[in-house]
């Protein structure tokens, strides 16, 4: 089977240079029907990544810049009085798109944040008693500035759990930076991208991801990981059952992207930093460092 993911990854890698692993994770997150949180300083290509993915997947793309004065209605939409009909009419907000880039989400107040996050969780919004379904697929990429920057409202832990993965992009390496500096404008490149995976095949793939086999041996390993996080004294709290499910879904997607029909421990290990890093409220902010004890101590066999 020719992996339909491969050309997509190739195209993305041509736009965002030197970030193969992060792109892979982002796509994995998407295939696992989860939302993505990118945490990094401004300017490392968060927006570009989101934009590229939207373009390659042929999704409606909307960027919402979160500011300190953004209101929930600015995201969800509001009922506005229509003088002709003499009635209130709902004007959908930017959230009614297939791919949302919620930029600098921690600049906004918790109120606005929770409006977005509730929508993410329930795949629908309720305004004045009426429920509106969000489009499908629905995929949110939120970006967040590092918490120590001034004027930010870091997402509370309970909200972080709603993101399947949190990744860090980091600075490009020297070669990639050189190519970036010498090459074409990224914006133009993105404009010229063609859709590699339209929504319908994407749905198919998401369904196939669900059928990836998980053996009981692997579940043992996963459970050992989860138990470990609950017992390890450096983690103030362990992984929740929802986190466990997220980990499993992400591992399945990862296995699928590797053209495998069964999940291996390596798949779990590959997605673990991104999936578990932000859920284990550890002193260390670096996801890889947070999960290092797990990878080191939980026996695979």
């Amino acid at each position: 089977m020719q992996n339909p993911i491969a050309p997509l990854l190739d195209s993305a890698n041509r736009i965002i240079l030197g970030k193969q692993h992060q792109i892979r994770l982002a796509l994995c997150c998407l295939l696992a029907r989860g939302h993505l949180l990118i945490e990094d300083i401004p300017g490392v290509g968060k927006t570009t990544l989101a934009h590229t993915l939207a373009k390659l997947l042929g999704l409606n793309y909307q960027r919402i810049q979160f500011t300190s004065d953004i209101l929930p209605s600015d995201i969800i939409g509001a009922s506005i009085f229509d003088p002709e009909d003499r009635s209130f009419k709902f004007h959908p907000g930017p959230i009614f798109n297939q791919m949302i880039l919620a930029d600098e989400i921690n600049r906004s107040t918790p109120k606005a944040q929770s409006a977005l996050l509730e929508a993410m969780e329930e795949q629908q919004v309720t305004v004045e008693g009426k429920t509106y379904r969000l489009p499908s697929p629905f995929f949110v990429i939120a970006t967040q500035n590092p918490a120590h920057q001034i004027g930010t409202f870091p997402l509370p832990e309970s909200q972080l759990d709603r993101f399947l993965m949190r990744i860090e992009l980091g600075y490009p390496d020297r070669n990639a930076e050189r190519e970036l500096l010498s090459g074409q404008s990224r914006y133009h490149l993105i404009e010229n991208l063609k859709t590699e995976l339209p929504p319908e095949p994407l749905k198919n793939i998401q369904q196939q991801v669900n059928t990836v086999h998980v053996s009981s041996a692997l579940l043992d390993y996963m459970q050992n990981i989860i138990t470990f996080t609950r017992e390890f004294p450096d983690y103030p709290c362990g992984l929740s059952p929802r986190a466990g499910l997220s980990l499993l879904n992400a591992a399945k997607a990862w296995a699928f992207m590797d053209s495998r029909d069964a999940v291996l421990p390596e798949d779990v290990q590959a997605v673990l930093p991104a999936v578990a890093g932000h859920r284990l409220r550890s002193a260390s902010q670096d996801s890889a460092a947070v999960v290092a004890p797990i990878l080191e101590r939980v026996n695979v066999l």
């Binding site: 291996l264 421990p265 390596e266 290990q269 797990i294 990878l295 080191e296 101590r297 939980v298 026996n299 695979v300």
Partner: peptide
């Protein structure tokens, strides 16, 4: 083999 090392690694 390290404890946390999967078969492929």
């Amino acid at each position: 083999r390290k404890a946390g090392e999967g078969p492929i690694d």
